[in-house]
Design a protein around this nucleic acid. Sequence first.
RNA 1: GCCUCAGUAGCUCAGUCGGUUAGAGCGACGGACUGUUAAUCCGCAGGUCGUAGGUUCGAUUCCUACCUGAGGCGCCA
Length: 401
Amino acid sequence: MKLTKDCAVIIAGELVASQGGSQSVEILASSVEVTGFVENPDTYPVSPKRHTVEYLREHAHLRIRTNLISSVARVRNTTSIAIHEYLQQNGFQWIHTPLITASDCEGAGELFKVTTLDLNNIPKNDKGIVDHKQDFFGREAYLTVSGQLNLETYCMGLSKVYTFGPTFRAENSNTTRHLAEFWMVEPEIAFATLMDDAALAQGMLKHVFKTVLNKNSDDMNFFAQFIDKSVVTRLESMVNDDFEMLSYTDAIKRLEASGKSFENPLYWGVDLASEHERFLCEELIGKPTIVTDYPKDIKAFYMRLNDDNKTVAAMDILAPGVGEIIGGSAREDRHDILVSRMKDAGIDHEMLSWYVDLRRYGSAPHAGFGLGLERAVSYITGVQNVRDIIPFPRTPKNAAY
RNA sequence: GCCUCAGUAGCUCAGUCGGUUAGAGCGACGGACUGUUAAUCCGCAGGUCGUAGGUUCGAUUCCUACCUGAGGCGCCA
C-alpha cells in the first residue's frame, strides 16, 4: 500500500506515549483502511512543498489542507467567538439584522441589487423606467452594506446590542483589504458618548487578542515562524498598552510637524490618505491609534455634529500594517440637525423616515462602531491579504467555488 | 475605476540581445536511510515558454489585442 500526502485513512490501534521528539503521543496501528487515495500525486495541487498564497487561492477548495490556511481558520473561529464572548459578558444582545434591505442610501458604498425580474425581459413602466412594482418586494432591494441603521432601532429598545454577520459591498476595490462579501461586527450602545464607544472598541480588541494568544498559541507561533516574526510580541504589547488616541486636528498637526513629504495633499479638511494613516500609526506612534473628531464634510450624515459645528464625533482605529480596522461614531440624536445633514448629503429622508422617527419618539444619545472581521484576523495573524482570511473570497471578477 | 508588474516543467523562478538538443530548486516517481515532524542521500522522468493575431526566411523571445493573477491608489471595514 502506497500512501501519499492527503490520502484519507481510518487507523485503529493503541494510543501510546511517543518516543519521538516534539510529539507526546502516537498510535501503534493494528489496522489501516484507506477511504480515499489521491489520484495523481504529481499534479495534486497541495503537494508537500511550500506554496504561495496566490496559488493556494486558486485552489480554494483544497487549501484548507495546508497548515497556513487551517491556522487562519482556527484563529478566525477564536476571534469570532471571542467577540461574542466579550459583548455577551458586557450585557449586549446579539441582533440579527436583515441582509436584504430596501434603503440604498446608507452612505457606505455601492450596493448589490436583489431582484427576481427577468433580466432578459425587464418590465418597464409608462415612463420607460424599470417597474419594480412587479419585482419580488414590489420595490428596489439590495444586499446590506451595514446593519447599523436597523440596529439603532433595537438599541432604542434594548440599550446594548450588536449585529455580527456578512456584509456586501459592490465596490470595484482591488486591494489586499477589501472583499465584496465580508463579516462585520457592529455594536451599538444607548446613552453613550464617543469616548464610551472607543473604550468598548479597545476593550473588545484586547479581549480578542488575549483569547487568541491563549487558545491558539501553536497557530500564532506558526505565523511567527513563517509569516511575520513580530505577530506574537505585537499582540502581547497590544494587550498591555493602551491605544494612542488623538483628534483628527492633532493628527494633521503631527503629520505636518513630521516634515515628511506625502504624495497626497495634507491640510485640515481633507480626508487622511492611506499613506498618512500608515505613517501616523506605524512610524509616528507605532501602535493602534484612535483618530477622533473628523471634519463633518468627509464623514457620514448620521455622525453627531460637535459643538464646534465643524467636526463630527467619529473615530477610526488604525492598526499598523492593515490600516483602518474599525470605524465608529456617536450618532446624531437631534432630529432637526439629522434632517438637515441628510439634506446636505442629498439623502431623501422620506425613504428613511423610520430612522428619523427614532429622533422623534424618545431620542437618546448613542454610539457604535463596525469592526471588519477579516481585517482583524489579518492583523492578528500577519497574513496580509484578506482573501486568505475568508474561506471563499468574493472580489471583483471572482466568485468561483 | 485608475496606475504598475507578471504569465516558461505539478509549484517557485532563471534564460533565450529572434536561429538546431529551454535550465535550477522544490514536488512527483524509483531506491536507500530513518524517531522523523515544511528530514537526509542516490537515481530518474517531466515543458507545442497564458490565448489569438501580426512582423520575420524563422518567434517562447519583438509588436498588438485579449484573458488570468499580483501589487499600489481611490472607496471603506
